[in-house]
Design a protein around this nucleic acid. Structure first.
Lengths: 209, 209, 209, 209
DNA sequence: CATGAATGAGGCTTCATTCAT
DNA sequence: AATGAATGAAGCCTCATTCAT
């Protein structure tokens, strides 16, 4: 029914409202220093309301990662599906996708790495954990398939495709993390995009035969 | 004085004892979940004693990063000082140094990224903050000098040497972080060294003309 | 009016529906651990609806006790009204009534004792408090009248009839509470009825001259 | 060593200090309405300190019961050990012991019954739970042995000794609970000791052949 | 009447830090 | 220098209650 659907939409909108607020606060203060009260204020809701949409602080935090993973996964899938492109062109598309992922949410990639703490993961609900696992595996597998295709066609060097995908992703996230670190410590000008461009250039030169 | 010196040495030894214990605990539990009590127990000291050697928890935490930065800085300086080696050979030495950095302290690189939080940095003493800045700048500058030399000799592609150094470090730390993430989420076999080897291989292929 | 009456009946039926649900939940979880949400779910109503029928949680809770007090009061009155029975026979009837009270609601007697907390009573509406007082006094007075009759006829020992009524009721509720306690702690077999039988036997032997 | 022992004694004294304060507050307000803050204030300690001596609120609460169980257990054991007394005399001693138990801690008997909630028991540490079980079983077993002796000597009626012990204890605690209830509801004069006296009189008359 | 999302006060508990010994 | 008991601020989270629909 219409009412049912409207409720659903409103519920989802409220979830997004919280996620957006949480993203802002987490990005500024980090996981530890951010309190649920902070997020409540930023989202103009009461603390109790946050718990109607997220089981606890850690789960809210993890949901941010999930969001960017979903975007990444979809974007990478699009690259794959583009028929009629050779692997080198697909690699270019993949790089474009990475810039979009960065623009989609520059800070959350940083936050994703805090998820590593196994102590943190213990508090996540199994469903959420499964979703995170599934999405990250899928995205990586898609990337690997591009590299595999290139290897078979003899245009990429013959290395394990999964390793290449891991390295591609590591390079991307490593540069983001490192540039963010430098900014915090040195307040320098932000060279992120320029550095990322050189990094991908190097990667392409390295992988192509 | 002899006594004075001995006291100094003992004090330094005690500091190291605490750092080693802290490293173990932080690696297992992460910054948030680790309590000063945990570190006190692991170092077989009392909580109060920790505060005789470190101003507060954040400063103790930052000291771990300092330690690996010192190691990194020294190792990179050694590579530089090796005369009679051409840039490609120096790059090989640099890569060897990176493996040693990893072996020196596999987990602390991960912890280093938690330092990003500007909120955390606010609690550090100016001296410590200066030391961290200085060391990381020095190490990066040293790396950059290798790349610059190669560019001038026409064996490396002409990109901003600092950017190349950033990318080299980002690739290294990115792979470590990502493999650690994968281990936590998937309990997979640890492919770190193999992946790192391919990554450096790609980097060399990419940078060389 | 017919409509008026029907409304009244429906309202009362809804109240009973809530009370029945509340009884189940309180019996399982106890006063503290039971939430209004729990009761709402058990009664298949919404939390807000509960407040249309009960001022607050404490009042809902107290209503459970009121219900068993009403039953007790009525049953005891029946025993009194049986003409043509001597006090000993009436005591036997009273004992039968106690078994029925227990069967009517085995757990709520336990809950009744939580009412003691003067802090809890402060939140009750004066009307409800009055009802509880009145009913419990009436039931006890009826019991006492049986004992008084027996004393006057010389078949029961000469003790203050109210004290005898208090003791009779204390013995009954004490056995129930204690057996319930034992069950929780030891998961033993439930000896309630057997123990109650011996208890009443002892009481009769003790009171009869 | 002396220092070791002094520390132990001080630790135990502090525990008692908290227990005494908790007893006062719980008696006034009941389990729900009492906050850890209340107990902290009453014991002139900080909230955090309470957690150095008790795992959580429920465990502190349960410790009160443990204390009276210990007293009860010891007192009943003394009655048993008195040689040269016949069962009837021992029963008299037992009754005296009950009065002492009541004087030792009039309110905590009431609190003991809140322990029934299985939800509450779940939060207790296994050790504490074991202690409570062991002590209550021991005390009851001792009581039962008195009744058994009386039955064998032909001075008590032949009923299951454990049931008789349960009834004896139920009568005692039932009267206390009921009189406390009446006081709360009616603010009457306190007839407890008088009623208890009649109750034990009845019990003795009932059990003796 | 019924709903159930939202509230927000307040409880329990943790833990970095201090200080008397 | 070392201890470790004590502190108390602050965080997470719950849940009785309300109110717009």
């Amino acid at each position: 029914m219409g009412i049912q659907e409207r409720k659903e939409r409103e519920k989802e909108r409220r979830r997004q409202q919280i996620i957006v607020a949480a993203k802002r606060v987490f990005s500024q203060k980090g996981l530890n220093k951010t309190t649920m009260e902070d997020i409540a204020k930023e989202s103009e809701l009461s603390p109790g309301t946050l718990y109607l949409y997220f089981k606890n602080k850690e789960e809210l935090y993890a949901s941010l990662s999930l969001r960017i993973l979903q975007f990444l996964s979809i974007r990478v899938a699009q690259v794959i599906q583009d028929q009629g492109e050779d692997p080198s062109e697909k690699l270019d598309r993949l790089i474009e996708a990475m810039y979009e992922v960065y623009d989609f949410d520059p800070m959350v990639i940083i936050n994703m790495f805090h998820l590593q703490s196994s102590e943190t993961l213990k508090n996540l609900s199994p469903e959420l954990l499964t979703q995170i696992k599934t999405l990250s595996k899928k995205a990586l597998a898609h990337m690997a398939s591009i590299f595999e295709e290139g290897i078979q066609q003899g245009v990429f060097i013959d290395r394990h495709p999964t390793a290449l995908a891991d390295i591609f992703w590591s390079l991307f996230s490593g540069v983001i993390l490192w540039e963010a670190s430098k900014n915090v410590i040195n307040q320098d000008k932000n060279y992120l995009k320029a550095t990322l461009s050189v990094a991908f250039d190097l990667f392409c030169r390295g992988i192509k035969i």
